[in-house]
């Protein structure tokens, strides 16, 4: 290990052989947009997202030998996701305000009588705001599901949690979002 390496980086970009490069171009590179989109939603900042995607790509190159199977998207997204989490942790330890705290925010809220068309008329902006305020583990499953159309199995692969956890995080994330948007969601859901 060279002195300039740290635990955070995957080391200097390793050259891919021509055959590996061809495989990388075909399997991983097409999913750059998906990588950036996920980073944008997880980090909520364009510069942070660029930094994360760049670091994730360096890791992807460094660890490309270890990639199995043909699902480059899920593989790349899992690296992007882990890179984002590392950045969030670093940001936190740097003294920035804490992320959404589930213990504080997720208690059941008293909801007024539901209006039938409330959700229907929601402005996209408030949905965006509500999503941004969710805890990162709920935000990521919702983005992977709704914007990437991944199956629960694929989301489990990306996030490294069991399918049952994916299912319950989606349900809880949606419930919190609907509550925040003022829809009449029953307790106990």
């Amino acid at each position: 290990m060279t002195p300039e390496r740290t635990a955070e980086t995957a080391g200097p970009p390793r050259r891919l052989s021509p055959e590996q490069r061809q495989r990388f171009d075909a399997l991983v590179l097409p999913h750059l947009d998906a990588a950036y989109n996920l980073a944008r939603y997880l980090l909520r900042d364009p510069h942070e997202a660029e930094e994360a995607v760049q670091n994730a790509f360096l890791r992807a190159v460094a660890y490309f030998d270890g990639m199995r199977g043909a699902d480059g998207r899920a593989w790349l997204l899992s690296i992007v996701r882990n890179t984002c989490y590392t950045q969030v942790r670093r940001r936190r330890s740097g003294g920035e305000k804490v992320e959404f705290d589930e213990e504080i925010h997720s208690h059941d809220v008293e909801v007024p009588e539901p209006e039938a068309d409330l959700v229907r008329s929601l402005a996209i902006a408030s949905v965006r705001k509500g999503l941004d305020q969710l805890a990162i583990e709920f935000r990521e499953v919702l983005v992977l599901r709704e914007l990437e159309s991944l199956s629960y199995k694929e989301i489990a692969h990306v996030t490294g949690v069991p399918i049952g956890t994916v299912m319950s995080r989606l349900a809880r994330g949606r419930k919190q979002l609907l509550l925040a948007l003022g829809a009449g969601v029953k307790e106990g859901a």
Partner: peptide, 18 residues
């Protein structure tokens, strides 16, 4: 509500890489 929420979420910006 769940269906409408899904529709709204799918209309959010998809941030393409710069």
């Amino acid at each position: 509500d769940h269906r409408q929420l899904g529709e709204s979420l799918r209309q959010l910006d998809y941030h393409r890489a710069p």
